[in-house]
């Protein structure tokens, strides 16, 4: 409500009243803010899911109408013969314009080869979307999760879009981590080979150029992605060997990684501890219990089994 209190009525309204009445008019303007309807509150994921619904509708309705527009003239002449054909075209375009989606089940890592020869390796729980016209139009991939990209160089850009940020390349190898359920909606890009442009969506002028062995991160609080810093690519891509490397990663985000990797649920019963950072390095595959042991030792916590996984408590 606060935002309604400091306002004066617009000048064009004020100027219609006598000088002696203006203070009172401003007061009424302010007070009327008391009866403002509250703007509904939506979480980021509410908005994204509404946006997703919208995308689906657009892919279905928008392209159907354009198909029937083009052949409208014909239909009058050959209506009966064409009715079936139109239905067929409509059905086909319905199919064509729904983007391809790939989701990796929890507990697994998946590799996908795209029509242009680019290869995407995806961590457990990762989801990507791309157009069925991928090869012919733009090479854009929507990412929710973590993936390693080996991009075939065809001269035109390949773009990964995730959590409001774009990663643009021509032909290179790099890792992107960007989970929609991350508390700060952070995206981390680490480059193995070649050159990568990293910038908040629509703000290409804010771009940071990353070369091999460099990484940068961005979240919606930042204007520009962070200054490129040296970074071990093997650490960023440790997940590809089913290993874990946590560098100053928040406990909440680490537990999400574990949940996805081991396909279990982990309850955390201690309020406020999710954002507490932790660093741990594993040079080989380890069991879930040994990671939980380490976390609990460092943070002074305990854990117990539940029907679906584990519960961490103090």
């Amino acid at each position: 409500m606060d935002k309604y209190h400091s306002l004066n009525a617009p000048d064009h309204i004020i100027s219609e009243f006598h000088a002696g009445q203006r203070d009172e008019i401003n007061e009424i303007w302010r007070l009327s803010g008391l009866s403002a309807q509250k703007v509904p509150e939506y979480s980021a994921s509410d908005v994204e899911s509404a946006l997703n619904d919208l995308h689906l509708r657009l892919e279905i309705s928008g392209d159907l109408t354009s198909t029937s527009d083009k052949i409208a003239g014909w239909i009058q002449q050959y209506s009966r013969v064409l009715a079936a054909a139109v239905a067929l075209i409509a059905l086909t375009s319905f199919f064509i314009f729904v983007p391809r989606t790939a989701v990796v089940p929890y507990g697994e890592i998946a590799t996908l080869e795209l029509p242009d020869g680019s290869v995407i390796e995806m961590n457990s729980g990762t989801e990507i979307r791309y157009s069925r016209f991928y090869r012919f139009s733009d090479r854009t991939i929507e990412l929710n999760g973590e993936a390693f990209f080996k991009v075939a160089d065809h001269g035109h850009p390949f773009i990964v879009v995730a959590n409001g940020v774009s990663v643009e390349v021509t032909g290179t190898q790099f890792n992107v981590r960007s989970w929609h359920d991350d508390l700060s909606r952070e995206t981390i890009v680490t480059v193995a080979e070649g050159e990568v442009l990293f910038y908040p969506m629509l703000k290409r002028e804010q771009m940071v150029v990353l070369t091999a062995g460099k990484s940068s991160r961005w979240n919606p609080e930042l204007v520009q992605p962070s200054e490129p810093e040296s970074s071990l690519f093997e650490d960023a891509a440790a997940w590809r060997d089913f290993r874990f490397v946590f560098r100053n990663q928040s406990l909440g985000s680490i537990l999400r990684d574990l949940e996805r990797r081991f396909n279990i649920t982990i309850e955390l019963d201690i309020p406020g501890i999710e954002s507490s950072p932790l660093t741990a390095y594993y040079s080989q595959q380890v069991s879930l219990e040994s990671v939980l042991d380490d976390i609990c030792t460092v943070k002074g916590l305990r854990y117990t089994r539940t029907s679906t996984g584990f519960r961490i408590y103090r």
Binding site: Q37, A50, L51, S166, M201, L202
Partner: peptide, 23 residues
């Protein structure tokens, strides 16, 4: 036809317009 801009505009206006429709 910039889809990213369209999405951003949606994110920006969604709560406001939903509230407005509710009135």
């Amino acid at each position: 036809s910039d889809k990213g801009a369209y999405d951003d505009f949606f994110r920006m206006m969604y709560a406001k317009l939903s509230g407005f429709a509710m009135t």
